[in-house]
Design a protein around this nucleic acid. Structure first.
Lengths: 241, 241
DNA sequence: CGGCTTGTTGACCTAATTCAACCACGGTGG
DNA sequence: CCACCGTGGTTGAATTAGGTCAACAAGCCG
């Protein structure tokens, strides 16, 4: 039987939750729903009444600037539990949208709070998850502020591939990542045209291929160096490198 | 009498703490210490045994790239309580340093955990503070990914000025911010030379003057527009605009 | 088959970097 | 008291990474 939280904090501290705590969390969710691709789910300023658990698919958090160009703040993959903001913050400061079709389970605010009050250790783990988010955000700041276009794209794929693998996706060879080059551009603060050129370079240099929604890291050591990637900030229980 | 936590979450949810909780927090700190300017306090990978409260001064969190160029992730000002990471994360993924001379009070890990277990509401507020950090990080990502040099510098000063005012610093006219142009460059992902040119432009356009450690916003409405700044993400109890 | 999305490539342009020189100011020591 | 020095700020000229604009190709779906 497939459980909702099967991937929650997998390889990232999940072990610190007891079976009872996990079960309580599991029970708190409403029945999973399917969301269509490329749909905005929450808009900046919305009052949010639920936290969301992503079972399948890819989602983005982002904000559009005055000219309609979009900046991603992060990508959500299966196993991410988000909008924990719903609890103390109440309204959101950015948009959330699906990229692919997604399956999500939500937990209403009140029920979430009751859960945390009953299981303080669960609250600790939510806080921990928030810190992991903040650590990822810092890496994105570093990427945008200090890396060249090639470095940015390299780093983006290093991080995303590592996260996907951490939740048990992908085989030895390749990892599925069903997003397009425009999404990558919006994550890396580049234009889609330039991302295209950068991807060609990375391919020609034998570091990475990204084609039809699949990432294949050809030379991990060199790619990591190119993207100044060091996976410590992901706090993986079992790092890849 | 000056208390350590006088500025903690001032104008940012402080009201949600009871007098007893604040007092318990207050008692938990070791005696304040003074740190010299431009000194690295914690380095990436260090095991951190304490959380730190900043009473006076300015500190930075940052990471240096392969060529020694630095990217700031955030500026700490009086009233910030940080390295809450110490509790669940144990080791740090970036550096922390003083910019000016600073006065700090620390709280050892074990004592902090005991405190949170006894006062769940205090734990909630720490979590809340972590979320505010994450919200600020997102704004920095947006700044670096989508704004021009002028927009970035404008936005940086909008945010920093708003935060300083929120903790009660500055008068109607100007706000003290004792950092230099290189610090601004490291925050905005620009070169110091270019920051200098941008500051001249902002001055000439009558939007902002930043000189000898003092920020003076000349035309708030226009500056906010230039920096695409919207202070909602700061979750201020009393927004300025 | 035609239309839509996504990816690819070329030519040109501009914002920001780089490199280098110089200035202003405060502090220190002779 | 002034010479010196270090830090931080300012300006100019040349260079380049990445953006912009525009056209076209490949794949997919109805």
């Amino acid at each position: 039987m497939t459980t909702i939280t099967a991937r929650f904090l997998l390889n990232r501290g999940r072990d610190r939750l007891s079976a009872e705590e996990l079960d309580a969390l599991e029970q708190a969710f409403d029945a999973p729903k399917t969301l269509p691709p490329r749909r905005t789910i929450i808009e900046r300023g919305d009052e949010i009444g639920v936290s969301t658990f992503l079972l399948e698919g890819v989602m983005s958090r982002h904000l559009d600037d005055q000219d309609g160009y979009r900046q991603l703040f992060g990508l959500h993959i299966a196993g991410d539990f988000f909008d924990l903001h719903a609890l103390p913050l109440r309204h959101l400061d950015h948009d959330v949208a699906t990229i692919t079709e997604c399956v999500v389970a939500t937990i209403p605010r009140d029920r979430g709070i009751a859960l945390l009050e009953r299981y303080p250790n669960l609250a600790m783990m939510m806080w921990y998850a928030t810190m992991l988010d903040a650590a990822m955000h810092r890496e994105w700041i570093f990427r945008l502020g200090r890396l060249s276009a090639i470095g940015r794209v390299a780093q983006f794929f290093c991080e995303t591939e590592a996260r996907l693998r951490a939740t048990g996706l992908g085989d030895d060879d390749a990892v599925p990542l069903p997003i397009n080059q425009t999404d990558v551009a919006e994550a890396c603060g580049l234009t889609p045209v330039h991302v295209n050129r950068v991807l060609r370079t990375l391919r020609e240099e034998g570091l990475l291929t990204f084609r039809s929604g699949t990432v294949r890291i050809e030379d991990r050591a060199r790619l990591y160096r190119r993207g100044e990637f060091d996976d410590r900030y992901l706090y993986l229980d079992k790092p890849a490198a």
